[in-house]
């Protein structure tokens, strides 16, 4: 059984589990599934907040911070007890393109060539780690949600603004992957 869990899970198992999070959170406490709002609560709780976006009672939304803390510990547990000893299998075409672009180490879930402390102090690493992170925070809050809040929760409730957001996420990602990454990866 444990061996089975340690193997990479198929898309349909993961899809069902993630989809079920929607009714579970609703039934447990009327909570709309969403993760990027946690970033807002963290700002409201920890940073200067004299503008209207952060003037609300974040303590009422504290369930969301418990939820993301859980996600963190899920990562810890997966690393300690459920690690797959095999290398991650990557599509041949993606692998070939990445190797042409100086992403050599594909042994881990993240490319260590980019996401490491040494890399952080290079221009390439700075763009991936810092600029990328900034855009994730700024973009999701500007869009009013991320993949979970819009693509999963919003679409589950048949909200067309969430479809607009989801299409925009995909277009943004595709544009950067095809037209920008080839240049930054070579930096």
């Amino acid at each position: 059984m444990l061996e089975l869990i340690k193997q990479p899970w198929s898309w349909y198992v993961a899809g069902v589990f993630i989809g079920l999070t929607v009714p579970i959170l609703l039934l447990l406490g009327n909570k709309p599934f969403g993760i990027s709002s946690s970033l807002r609560h963290i700002c409201a709780a920890c940073l200067p907040r004299n503008f209207s976006y952060f003037k609300y009672n974040w303590k009422k939304e504290i369930w969301n911070l418990f939820f993301v803390t859980g996600i963190f510990f899920g990562g810890v547990i997966a690393n300690l007890f459920l690690k797959d000893p095999n290398l991650i299998i990557i599509a041949e075409k993606t692998k070939a393109v990445l190797q042409q672009n100086n992403v050599k180490d594909i042994s881990n879930l993240l490319p260590v060539d980019i996401f490491s402390w040494q890399s952080l102090f290079t221009l390439r690493g700075f763009i991936f780690i810092c600029v990328g992170g900034f855009l994730v925070g700024f973009g999701t809050r500007y869009a009013g949600g991320c993949t979970s809040g819009h693509a999963i929760m919003g679409l589950s409730n048949l909200q067309w603004p969430s479809l607009v957001a989801t299409i925009s996420f995909m277009v943004g990602g595709i544009v950067v992957t095809w037209f920008v990454l080839p240049f930054i990866l070579k930096l």
């Binding site: 993301v68 963190f72 700024f138 869009a143 603004p161």
Partner: peptide, 24 residues
Amino acid sequence: QIYGGLLFGFGWALTGACPGPLFA
């Protein structure tokens, strides 16, 4: 949802992570 969505898409392609996976 369009402007922010595109910006998040840019970030998603760079970091390979939406906010949830960042925590994991």
